[in-house]
Structure formats: structure tokens, C-alpha cells
Design a binder for these strands. Sequence first.
DNA 1: CTTGTGTCCTGTAGGC
DNA 2: TGCCTACAGGACACAA
Length: 276
Amino acid sequence: MPELPEVETIRRQLSRVLSGARIVRVVVRRADVIGYPAVGRFQRMLRGKVVRAVRRRGKYLVFVLSPAGKLIVHLRLSGHLRLLGGDAAAKHERVRFVFDRGGSLSFIEPRALGRVYFVEGKELPPALDGFRRLGREPIDRRFDPDYLSARFQGRRARVKDLLLDQRICAGVGNIYSDEALFFAGIRPLRRADRLKSEEISRLVRALKMVLRAGIKNLGTTMADGRYLQPDGARGRFGDKLMVYGRAGEPCRVCGAKVKRIKIGSRSSYFCPGCQS
DNA sequence: CTTGTGTCCTGTAGGC
DNA sequence: TGCCTACAGGACACAA
């Protein structure tokens, strides 16, 4: 569910609220969301640790702890982090981190696909291979046309699939890839190695633009209200989407009907008038 | 290595 | 109301 802008929004809020807070207890309500290490060790290692900083890499949240270690969280499709006051377990709560200053951070994951990890040193468990292999972030200065064309070189895959590849575009997901392709004027099924350098440049600019706009608007909360900030507030980027979730509706630029196609098992939206 | 497909898991919305 | 299907902001393990 959450992509780079949503995770970044969550990061900023948690950094503000949790910096300096000490974990006094870790309640595990469902063991299989603990990606590493085993449940008992996960709980023991976290108890007593103080949150020093909250960082983000791609769609991963990284809580830097002292005296040592990191708590790494990936929300996958349906995960949430909520700051809660009371003791009552939230619906679909899988893990709860209770803090010394009162209140707790609840990891809520209806589908139980998301994972939390604790790591000590520099070496990462195999379960975090995806983390280690992350590519550059589109909002990074070094994510430039040279970088992207090098990664697209010789790749016959559809451009949409490569935008979703975290080893190439860390943090990009289904919504923002469609939005970026719209602004770049490129159809999602185009072969990556057949994009002209002008198109790659437009794509780089579009990615940076839509991700920054997403962050500025605190993320995308669709009508179903599935993504929320840790304090429960909605993101405002949903109103600003050009194509994602708008199948059959008129393009906001040219008026053509937005189309929805399937790529793999996932939906992709584009405007047949604006994108070629 | 690359590419496409299936799978993990659960909830919800919509059709009949 | 109940049953069935499709779909969901993700990432992997596979087979070809």
C-alpha cells in the first residue's frame, strides 16, 4: 500500500513523536510478521532501547536505536503504523511497541504480509536481501537520466515493470509509477530499451515531480481510507491523481477516457490521448 | 541473467 | 442475506 511518499510521511511524523522514547515492552500478537530474528529474541533485543532517529530507505522504515541496533519495518500492501494512547489492541494489530512515556506504536497488518526486523550490526539476514539491493531513490540528485538509461539498457521488459523494480527505482509503487508515466507521456507497456533519451529524461523529471508532490500532500489516501498517517490523518494526494484509479473517467488534460489494463496481475492506468 | 507467472494472506465491494 | 468472484499502495520464488 504505502509507497515512498506515504512511508516518508509516516517517517516524519514518527520521528517527531518517538525520538527519545524508550521501548519498555514488545507485544507480539502474530509471530509470522516477525521477519528476523525469532520472536523471543526480537522482543528481548528491543526491550529497553531508545529511538534515536527514524529513517527511510525505499519503502522500508528504519528506527535507529541506542545503545545499538535497528528496527526495520516494511508495510507491504496493507500495513499501518498507528500511535495509540490506550491499552486496547487495535483491529488486526500484529505487534505493539509500548513506550516509557506512555502510549504505543501499533503495527497493524490485516493481510499479515508486512514484516518487522531487528538487526544489530552491519550484516543483514537473507530476509533483508531486498533491502540491501535497493537501487537509487528517484528523489535523489544522483537519480538522473544517465542512471536510468544505464538501467534500462538492453532491458526488453515493460517500462512499468522496471519502474516497480526496487533495485532500479527504490520506493516507487503502482500509484506513482502510473502517475509518472502519465506526466512523461509514456504508455506503461512500452519496452524499456526502446525509450528515446528524451523520453527517459522526461520520465526522470516526472518521477521526481510526482514523488515530491506526494510527500508534500502527505501521501495518497484513496476513497477506501486504507492508508492513514500514524495519527490517523488522511493524505491529500488522492484528489490530485491524474490516472491511477480513474478508469473510464475523462483525462484532466485532454478529456480522453482513462484506460485500465492488466500488467501481470496488477492494474495499470493511462491516458490514451496523452501517452504514447 | 532476464522475463512472466503464481503465491503469500485477509478483507471488502459488487454482481446475482 | 448469502455466495461467488475480483481486486488490493508489494515482493519474492519459481520455471522457461
